[in-house]
């Protein structure tokens, strides 16, 4: 499975795709699957499942807290793959977003094989760039998986071209200089980054910029092919630690608002 058809369908409908993120095992493995399938049901076109890691240098406090809760609960790589299998079974393309060491430790080709077998679409690799990723690129190609690499406002044009040339599925434009986290203001870095990226590729461009509302999603959808939302979705569950039903209701409501937003863009 690849994310390509999901982006194509959104394009055919004249809108951006909604890409939603949660870490696996949060609040626990079963609860995470329920939350992710809720997001599918409420309008996410593509799902990103985070693999909780002990040293998440690109994540802000919200995602750190959720991943730590998952680790404290004993989540394992096998649980992440089980979560992928359950979510991918809905038919919605499902990527894993992971820091590199757990993949290397698992065995790069073995990880690719098991991810493909679970129905996963591919990997997003926030701390692996294509010039350091030869082993992953070979494994992804062998197992027909998407390779989602990141570009940043600080990337040179040359590095953007190198990155998009190595990507499959979509290109992830991390459009703020900073860690993950919901932001109320929009970044003036996103537009130029998307334009510079688009000059190098026909791949869809998904933008992560700390979106937390339908209006922000709509604004972003006016020039991006995908609107990526993580921290704001995680926050809905963190805000209801003792009431899962309320957390899921808030998660559903926000996802619907965002799905509506990408249709207004």
């Amino acid at each position: 499975m690849s994310v390509t058809p999901a982006f194509a369908r959104a394009r055919d409908e004249g809108r951006a795709a909604l890409v939603g993120y949660l870490p696996a095992g949060f609040p626990d493995v079963a609860g995470g699957i329920e939350a992710l399938t809720t997001m599918v049901d409420a309008g996410c076109d593509v799902i990103e499942i985070g693999l909780p890691y002990s040293d998440p240098v690109m994540d802000g406090p919200t995602i750190q807290a959720a991943a730590q809760q998952a680790l404290d609960g004993g989540v394992r790589v096998a649980d992440v793959l089980r979560t992928v299998e359950a979510v991918a079974a809905t038919g919605t393309p499902t990527l894993v977003m992971t820091y590199w060491n757990p993949v290397e430790r698992y065995g790069v080709d073995r990880f690719a094989a098991d991810l493909a077998a679970a129905g996963g679409a591919g990997l997003i690799t926030p701390d692996l760039t294509p010039d350091s990723g030869a082993e992953w690129i070979a494994a992804a190609d062998a197992h027909d998986l998407d390779k989602v690499f990141l570009v940043a406002p600080s990337s040179t044009d040359e590095r953007i071209a190198m990155t998009t040339a190595a990507s499959r599925g979509f290109v992830y434009a991390a459009a703020v200089m900073g860690v993950t986290g919901a932001r109320t203001t929009t970044s003036d870095l996103a537009g130029p980054l998307v334009a510079r990226t688009r000059a190098t590729t026909d791949l869809p461009i998904g933008v992560g910029i700390g979106v937390s509302s339908g209006d922000q999603a709509a604004e972003l959808a006016s020039y991006a092919d995908g609107v990526i939302v993580g921290s704001a979705l995680v926050r809905t569950l963190l805000d209801h630690p003792h009431d899962r039903a309320a957390g899921l209701a808030a998660l559903r409501a926000l996802t619907e608002e965002l799905a509506n937003g990408v249709r207004r863009g």
């Binding site: 690109m58 701390d127 760039t129 940043a152 200089m177």
Partner: peptide, 16 residues
């Protein structure tokens, strides 16, 4: 790069 140690496994944002 294959058998050795070091390199740069870092977010693209810091590569520049």
């Amino acid at each position: 790069p294959v058998d050795g140690f070091g390199g740069r496994f870092m977010p693209e944002a810091l590569v520049a």
